[in-house]
Design a protein around this nucleic acid. Structure first.
Lengths: 226, 226
DNA sequence: GTGTGCGTCAACGCATGCATTGATGCGTGC
DNA sequence: GCACGCATCAATGCATGCGTTGACGCACAC
């Protein structure tokens, strides 16, 4: 099934969606940038139809806003947006940790989280913020995907994507996230021990602290939009 | 702005989306039903293009699944889905109550919640389950919309819609939700008092109990799919 | 100089045509 | 009798044409 989907050639609309999404997340289309259907179609070598479909999907993802006659505009993230996003994550991710701990999965299935934790620790030792951020993303993605609740996972990944640019932007403004790394490890240990309550609470505090720090940082830096 | 949007004639795609969505929620398109693009286009008196757009939106909403060459199939909800949905609601809605309590909105802005509570109590007195369900929906919608976090609100409404049919279906199988009504009122009082902690915890317990009851009911009734 | 009204045209929403694809059923070979 | 393969065709994904709409600029009146 998954294989069938993977082997069948992706549609033009899917290609347009993935390419535009990647360009937005990587900040190749900066926030505020506006693109008309016809421009993007020309750029991507497609007709307007699949591009239009991709634009609508990106709008549902909250990455762009589409206004008739003005095309799609890459959404900027304000400090208020970040607060909203972190309130959502603070609600959903601890639940994911709790659910995952309850599942008592075999150790092997937790490999993505284990290697993400290892990678974070290595990155800290090397003071490599970019690698740390990548491992951090791996941990959160793994947690969402492994928790067994697809709806919850999709929601987490949606707001995670929305805040991707902001996280990348503030990456080098923060002290080395040593404490965050330790909190991830502790959460993982609680999950491995099957201690749902403790996993949830540990993760909730992690999220709360991390979110507050990031928002304070953004506000202090005077960045109104990212 | 909102007026401008409301007065401008809705697009054909929007009409198709709203009509299909309503038909699905009202169970006029039962779960499992399959429709091809061309069939729906004929039915709705539109061309395939706007119908296709509506189908894709409904898929993102989790109300249907679209398979090439098989059209869209109205999604059925399993007990496992209900569990997932209630785990999401149990995470998000208490946060909404907390956020709303923190906002300290003027009493007038809470009118939707007040009237929903009143309507629930009236419905209980009259043993009118349909009216109760409508008031319940009004309360949850009001809570989501008033909490000030649009992302959270959209997520709550999305899973709420997904579980709409299941709730309607079990409505007459449950005892009169007197306790639930009282819990709504108590949560509202905590919100009015600006007591965020208490609003969150009260609502969390309400969700937890209500969800567990509903799922137990569905499982006991042997309904595998709704 | 400023505000208003109108014309123009670009962008879009929708309809439709066409090529592609994969599901279905039949025939053939084992 | 069963399985495999091929032909057929329905459904779709995409391209494109067309009519509509509203944004923008210009002219004119005040």
């Amino acid at each position: 099934m998954a294989d069938a989907l993977r082997t069948s050639r992706p549609t033009a609309a899917e290609v347009a969606y993935q390419r535009l999404r990647t360009m937005i997340l990587d900040n190749h289309l900066p926030p505020g940038a506006q693109w008309l259907e016809a421009e993007l179609a020309l750029e991507l070598g497609l007709s307007r139809t699949p591009v239009r479909e991709a634009m609508l999907r990106l709008q549902q993802d909250g990455l762009v806003s589409v206004t008739p006659r003005h095309g799609m505009r890459v959404a900027a993230i304000s400090p208020a947006d970040m607060r909203d996003i972190y309130d959502v994550l603070e609600s959903l991710e601890p639940k994911a940790a709790e659910l995952l701990a309850r599942r008592n999965l075999p150790e092997a299935d937790l490999a993505p989280l284990l290697s993400a934790c290892d990678a974070m620790e290595t990155a800290i030792a090397r003071q490599d913020r970019a690698a740390w951020a990548q491992a951090d993303e791996g941990f959160h993605r793994g947690l969402a995907e492994l928790c067994g609740n697809r709806r919850l996972a999709a929601m987490v990944m949606q707001v995670w994507d929305q805040s991707h640019r902001a996280r990348m932007f503030t990456l080098n403004m923060r002290p080395l996230p040593e404490r965050s790394t330790a909190e991830h490890r502790a959460t993982l240990d609680a999950i491995r021990a099957g201690d749902a309550e403790s996993a949830r609470e540990m993760y909730r505090r992690h999220r709360q602290r991390g979110g507050a720090e990031l928002i304070a940082l953004i506000e202090r830096s005077g960045l109104a939009w990212l």
